[in-house]
Simulated assay, not measured.
Amino acid sequence: MTPRPPHVALERVSKVFTRKPDFAERIAISLGWPEPPIVRAVDGVSLAVDHGEALGLVGESGCGKSTLGRIVAGVHAKSGGRFEFEGREEA
């Protein structure tokens, strides 16, 4: 009998948020100022949840728990890594 793949599997999943610069920031960037900062909300998370298992995420406020959940739910697209649901890779 072939073993079932994990129900949900994440491998080195990351999510980066960037903000479009406003007019003043675009002028500053054209003059050589650094680009607006990016926010790494999730960085290299790997986990697997088998059928019948439950997973709880615990961490400080702002550490990426909700963002990770939104990636799994399909609300946010991942910036990098691999996400599989029922053995099929998701976007």
Rank of each mutant, 00 (worst) to 15 (best):
M1N: 08
T2H: 14
T2A: 11
T2Q: 15
P3M: 12
P3K: 12
P3A: 11
P3L: 10
R4P: 14
R4Y: 14
R4V: 09
R4A: 13
R4G: 06
P5W: 11
P5V: 04
P5S: 09
P6Q: 00
P6H: 01
H7E: 05
H7P: 00
V8P: 00
A9Y: 03
A9C: 08
L10Q: 00
L10R: 00
E11Y: 00
E11W: 00
R12G: 02
R12M: 02
S14P: 03
S14R: 08
K15Y: 13
V16W: 11
V16M: 08
V16R: 12
V16L: 12
F17W: 14
F17Q: 03
T18H: 14
T18N: 13
R19L: 14
P21W: 13
P21T: 04
P21N: 10
P21L: 10
P21S: 04
D22Q: 11
D22F: 15
D22C: 11
D22I: 11
F23Q: 01
F23C: 01
F23G: 02
R26W: 12
I27E: 08
A28E: 04
A28R: 15
A28C: 07
A28F: 12
I29P: 08
I29D: 04
I29G: 05
S30L: 09
W33E: 04
W33V: 00
P34C: 06
P34V: 09
P34L: 07
E35Y: 10
P36E: 04
P36H: 09
P37S: 14
P37C: 06
V39Y: 15
R40P: 01
R40Q: 10
A41N: 06
V42S: 04
V42G: 02
D43H: 01
G44R: 01
G44W: 01
V45R: 08
V45T: 09
S46R: 01
S46Q: 03
A48K: 03
V49A: 03
D50S: 12
D50F: 11
D50R: 15
D50V: 03
H51G: 06
H51W: 14
H51T: 09
H51S: 05
H51D: 03
G52H: 13
A54E: 07
L55Y: 13
L55R: 09
L55C: 12
L57V: 06
L57I: 14
V58M: 13
V58D: 05
G59A: 07
E60R: 15
E60W: 13
E60D: 12
S61R: 15
S61H: 11
G62T: 07
C63H: 05
G64S: 02
K65E: 06
S66F: 14
S66E: 07
S66M: 08
L68G: 09
L68C: 06
L68W: 10
G69Y: 12
R70G: 08
R70N: 12
R70H: 13
I71M: 08
V72P: 09
G74K: 12
V75H: 11
V75P: 01
H76W: 11
A77I: 02
A77D: 15
A77C: 03
K78E: 08
K78D: 01
G80Q: 03
G81F: 06
R82Q: 06
R82L: 05
F83V: 00
E84W: 10
F85C: 02
F85V: 02
F85I: 08
E86C: 04
E86I: 02
E86L: 09
G87H: 15
G87W: 12
G87A: 03
E89G: 03
E89M: 13
E89Y: 10
E90G: 05
E90P: 00
E90W: 10
